[in-house]
Write a protein that binds this DNA or RNA. Sequence first.
DNA 1: AAACCTTTGAAGACA
DNA 2: TGTCTTCAAAGGTTT
Length: 548
Amino acid sequence: MPQLNGGGGDDLGANDEMISFKDEGEQEEKISENVSAERDLDDVKSSLVNESENNSSSSDSEQTERRPQPRPDTESYEKAREYFSEALRRQQDGGFFKSPHYPGYPFLMIPDLASPYLSNGALSPSARTYLQMKWPLLDVPSSAALKDSRSPTPGHLSNKVPVVQHAHMHPLTPLITYSNDHFSPTTPPAHLSPEILDPKTGIPRTPHPSELSPYYPLSPGAVGQIPHPLGWLVPQQGQPMYSIPPGGFRHPYPALAMNASMSSLVSSRFSPHVVPHHPHGLHQTGIPHPAIVSPAIKQEPNGDLSPAAHTKSPGPAKKEDEKKPHIKKPLNAFMLYMKEMRAKVVAECTLKESAAINQILGRRWHSLSREEQAKYYELARKERQLHSQLYPGWSARDNYGKRKKRKRDNKADSTAEDFSARNKKPCVQYLPQEKMIDSPASSHGSMLDSPATPSAALASPAAPAPTHSEQAQPLSLTTKPEPSSSSSSSSTSSSSSSTPPLLSRPIPFTSLHPSLLSPPSPFHQAALHSHHALFQSQPLSLVTKSAD
DNA sequence: AAACCTTTGAAGACA
DNA sequence: TGTCTTCAAAGGTTT
């Protein structure tokens, strides 16, 4: 956890042009927040839940009538979005992560991988297990309090697969990614009309008996009847990671062949309300899915629902092609991890560039323990499973060419100098500290410290004390092996001393701010301080690509 | 505006 | 079978 830096702000700031924290004051403030926030984490979570429950206290029908069903194109939607954005920020201030990239998109309607609720409304053990995997930071309720809030009568909505989430919103993120917007605990948005402000979170809420229960105290019987105001915020079991355009789904839900197993896999807990009424936007079942994204949509994050949005393409064929639904690949374990952790990394430093963030995340990924990674592998496996069941005929091949093909010569033909020149700046700006962490190339390190390899602990938070040898280890900044020579050169350059470092000079392991590598610890801080002088004077001339 | 960058992993293509 | 390529997310940067 973050530690008060005890005057280390200067030290941290010394190299802030590389990986800089925000100004010291903000940094310290953030740390303070986190320190106290962690202490109150449970309170925060319970407050969020309680508040949501309070809002759910009314009967289902009442709720449905009184609270406009959120739609992407309605005012209520905007309000809800702001509301939960605020809630996320508050919770974030309560010790989670901050990110300016996730505005707290409220919609999160996820199909169940398997009907997770027992007849009595309680979460099934498997559902809980999965839920816990998806939400490691949350206490998964033993009772079914997570039913989709907007499913007044889940039963009648069978086979609907509501998956509505922010285009960049990961199902895991709602409670672990947060806007980085400055939040004033004392000034909740006016539209929130808070009845009661939670003293700790400042989140508006109304008193409710269930407050006595920490997290999801809804009685089983109430589950499924009471819309959960945080329904889109609450993880749904089996929720896929597929994003949708902010404007909602506009494309058919192509391959939702609901077989028997599918019917059981995709439960009925979904509401059509969030589905924009678009004549061409939905499958006949009315089921949208975030995995379905058309190129046109991706290019128009504002979500223009007008047909004109699809008429940009010049030729009819191309146009038609663009209209074709694009079922995205299921996210792999690392992608899931990235989505979850990106906001945290972004919050911990001023890094914004995804390329740099991803490098950090790659490091962290390898620093994860086997068990930690296993969670994501399992999650990814389930995602693939769900994906394959949602789209039986889908193949990754279908998406070939969906992206503008990367210039072939980018990898094959580009010279090392090209890469060096191209990547030098980003590395100098953001990566040097990170790059020094452990083995040189992250991708190389991945080979050495494969997810299943305990040696990953080399850079693990559990082993925060970088040895001197580690610090002195020459670190190649090769981020990706060259197609041809990579396999050999990279693997050797990473760990063996036989390969000359691509980095112009060795950089101490601890040059990277610990928070960027792994969860900050006192030891990290101490190490950082002790080695500050080293990286402070590092002339960072980094070669990010192998010269060969 | 679109591609690039960067990461890991899954899957497909190809030799 | 092994290797290579593409794509998945993301958003600042570059072209």
